[in-house]
Design a binder for these strands. Structure first.
Lengths: 227, 227
DNA sequence: CACTGTTTCATACGTTCGTTTTAAATAATA
DNA sequence: TATTATTTAAAACGAACGTATGAAACAGTG
């Protein structure tokens, strides 16, 4: 290995890609936009990453690697402290979703930009990113799922899995659509809300998804399902 | 106006566009894919709709027009029956989200295909679709918002707006990611779950989002927000 | 039938896309 | 400093993109 020429072409490309993929999506972002914003030559992406797809994967790997390791670290810490007893659902939810949301405050880890990219990507999984995300998430999801099964022994497992799914949705959307949703709604939030919006998003979202997780089980009233 | 030549080129283009935009996204879908799947000439899209963007808008207008009229019809019906009394939150939620989810069973209204397109589009709002969606949604969101304010007079309005936001997210995601999420989780759901998955999604999702809506209000413990 | 407006068709236009190539510039090693 | 490996630079590639054109096929009306 050799030292950087200017201050890291690689990193500048990743930052530009992260931001542009977040704003315009994968297909909507061109190599020329990326290299233009990063102020590097067009060929630099293919030199450093091989292809546009590989760049996209590296954008995710750079952030998700840390995030999912942190999630597992937090979970193990809690499990150690609990000495074999089940964790509280709120602890588990905070370990998974709270750790994610707290990334938004850490600009050295991508901050809001990466979170919003992640949120929108989960609903538009191209084939190549889909298989990649599966690998990155497999272990951490399995661990948290097991923890929830243990924490909620009376709730059917299928139900827990669905609700995990819903929580992921509410979270992704809340992040990805921080202003995309304003669009659809046109609601005005008081000024104080927008300034420190992020500080307040976490407790708000936590309340909501915990409320959903603990909601009464649905009645499968087969006759009235349609209404 | 003149009759159709073969059986409605326009409609076949809309159907193909709806499906392909759902699978590959707007930028990821080419005119040649659309006209190929619809078995019409390449120029037919520009002839009938003017441009690719206009086609996308028409794909949405065709479904959203009916959906949002139906939502308002249902709301007015409930309000009339209530004779000025506040509605139950569960009624309002069912009017908005239940009406949406029940579209999935109606293939003459796009069924799951359109729902999934809608779900993924809400997290990737291109500038041109963003302004369009705002117009389509403005009235219905305002009406339901007001109904919720009235139904939950003790809950701060900002809180209700946020939770509406979260509910929309959980719903969009649950729909858009019907198998995109399987990807991320790799959970196995019992066979019986997948067959009539849709019948069971509605009550499950309803329980979840109602639980979230009724959850205890968050504590803004400013000192401990970061952990 | 001829006439007229509508729809379909094959084809081509000018751009932009991701990628490749060849050479120049830079940094590390001896 | 001479040599070698790494990184940047400029230019070009073929392919695919959305769109436009003009003629052919069609349907409705007299």
């Amino acid at each position: 290995m050799i030292e950087n020429k200017s201050i890291d072409t690689r990193e500048r490309i990743l930052d530009a890609g992260e931001r542009l993929f977040m704003v315009h999506g994968y297909d909507g972002t061109s190599m020329r936009q990326i290299t233009g914003e990063a102020a590097v030559n067009l060929a630099a992406v293919n030199y450093h990453f091989g292809s546009k797809e590989s760049l996209m994967q590296e954008v995710f790997r750079r952030r998700l690697g840390w995030l999912n390791e942190e999630r597992i670290r937090v979970l193990e810490e809690m499990e150690t402290a609990a000495q074999g007893n089940p964790l509280k659902p709120s602890q588990i939810v905070d370990g998974f979703f709270g750790t994610l949301l707290r990334m938004a405050d850490d600009d050295t880890r991508g901050g809001m930009t990466f979170l919003r990219l992640l949120g929108r990507t989960l609903t538009e999984p191209s084939e190549f990113i889909r298989t990649f995300l599966m690998d990155e998430y497999a272990e951490v999801v399995e661990r948290y799922k097991q923890a929830l099964f243990k924490a909620l022994p009376d709730v059917p497992k299928a139900e827990i899995v669905w609700r995990f799914h819903f929580m992921l949705g509410a979270t992704s959307y809340a992040i990805a659509g921080t202003d995309a949703l304003r669009v659809v709604t046109d609601w005005q939030i008081e000024p104080e809300e927008t300034t420190d919006r992020l500080d307040r998003l976490l407790p708000r979202l936590m309340s909501f998804i915990l409320g959903g997780l603990r909601a009464p089980l649905p009645q499968f009233d087969s006759a009235a399902v349609g209404k």
